[in-house]
């Protein structure tokens, strides 16, 4: 794995470095879920985490916004820096961090509130709007970015749970980007969606790249190939290979990567 480090360093210097993880270890009780993972994620790129189930890619994703803090038995070691600041520093408030590092989950989970209130939830909590007009503007902007505005503008007061699955997931994306995050984490955002909704969300991810650094966990290698510029392959808690997406899928360096993308392990 040490032979990967020069590549990472090269990437880091090439583009703006957003997230830098060094020697991250995660334990769930006695289970060593993430083993010494170091990775650099660039700004305004889409980075995909691929790997077989249980390989730790979601766990690692949840380290980046400290969602693992909500699990009693989880313990994280190592450093994760966002813009050079250690997010596991005691001075960092995880609640504030999560506003900066938004997250979209595997299953669409809109709150049992109206579409408007779903999107306005984060801005209200963080006091991002001074008045109703500003809040309206944030909501509209977020829904437009999430490509949901045209479908939802006439029913902003309808419950978010009444939307279709793909619309719900785009609502969750709108909700996440309404707090103006710098990084957007997506944990298998399309696994509960049909192919059409998946295509819409993928298109959206590509657009979001203009403003955010997007990290996406996915089981679909086609999806990783379609949406990401960088791909990291995890296996059994190890980061096996991390490189440009094209390179991973055409010319993987590690035999395990090659086996996985050609469908022999997983």
């Amino acid at each position: 794995m040490n032979d990967m480090t020069p590549v990472n360093r090269k990437l880091g210097t090439m583009q703006d470095l957003k997230i830098s993880a060094r020697g991250v270890q995660v334990y769930y009780g006695d289970n060593h879920a993430i083993k010494d993972v170091s990775v650099d994620i660039a700004h305004k790129t889409v980075t995909a985490f691929i790997g077989p189930s249980g390989c730790g890619k979601s766990t690692f994703l949840r380290c980046i916004n400290r969602m693992n803090d909500t699990i009693d038995v989880a313990r994280v070691e190592g450093d994760i820096l966002i813009d050079g600041e250690d997010i596991y520093d005691p001075k960092v408030d995880p609640v504030q961090l999560r506003a900066k590092v938004g997250m979209v989950f595997q299953k669409p989970n809109p709150f049992p509130k109206s579409i408007y209130d779903n999107v306005a939830y984060g801005p209200k909590i963080h006091g991002l709007a001074r008045n109703k007009a500003e809040l309206d503007e944030i909501v509209e902007k977020s829904l437009r970015k999430a490509a949901l505005w045209n479908e939802a503008k006439d029913r902003l007061n309808a419950p978010g749970t009444g939307l279709s699955g793909g619309q719900q997931q785009r609502l969750c994306i709108a909700r996440a980007i309404a707090t103006a995050p710098e990084v957007l984490l997506m944990d298998e955002p399309c696994s509960a969606l049909d192919p059409i909704a998946t295509a819409q969300v993928e298109e959206l991810i590509d657009e979001l790249r203009q403003s955010f650094s997007v990290v996406i966990v996915t089981h679909s290698m086609q999806q990783a190939a379609r949406v990401s510029q960088k791909t990291a392959f995890f296996h059994l808690g190890n980061l096996v290979e991390y490189d440009d997406t094209d390179k991973i899928f055409t010319n993987p360096q590690d035999s395990r990567t090659e086996s996985y993308i050609s469908g022999r392990i997983g």
Binding site: M67, V95, L97, R98, F105, F111, T179
Partner: peptide, 9 residues
């Protein structure tokens, strides 16, 4: 809960 906590609540 995850959704809300993930938004920084």
């Amino acid at each position: 809960r995850d959704g809300s906590l993930g938004l920084g609540a």
